[in-house]
């Protein structure tokens, strides 16, 4: 049960949000090869550590935004708007 800091509404409980999977994906154009297209469709990152993902404040403002979440500890390192660049997070490897 995460606590997520919606950039518009403030900190709310996870139950108010919907998860939208990995963020910062670039949608290939029609002339992309089958390999590039299937990579976009099916291959998602599943890191042990920081994951950049999108969430939507479903029972709130209805806005999508990005979250940098540690998949091991569930710590949320950053919340930032859709379209913004990945934040530079100096987080040490959880295994080290």
């Amino acid at each position: 049960m995460l606590r997520i800091d919606c950039p518009w509404c403030g900190t709310r409980d996870e139950v108010e949000f919907s998860f939208g999977g990995e963020s910062h994906l670039t949608r290939p154009t029609l002339d992309a090869s089958d390999a590039v297209w299937s990579d976009y469709l099916f291959n998602k990152d599943n890191p042990k550590g920081i994951h950049f993902e999108r969430w939507m404040h479903r029972f709130g403002c209805g806005r999508w935004f990005n979250v940098a979440r540690d998949t091991l500890t569930h710590e949320i390192h950053a919340v930032y708007e859709m379209g913004a660049a990945k934040p530079d997070l100096a987080v040490k490897d959880p295994d080290s």
């Binding site: 999108r54 209805g62 859709m82 379209g83």
Partner: peptide
Amino acid sequence: TAWLEQWHQCEWP
């Protein structure tokens, strides 16, 4: 509705 919103907000803002 939610799906259209996602395309608008995330892909073609």
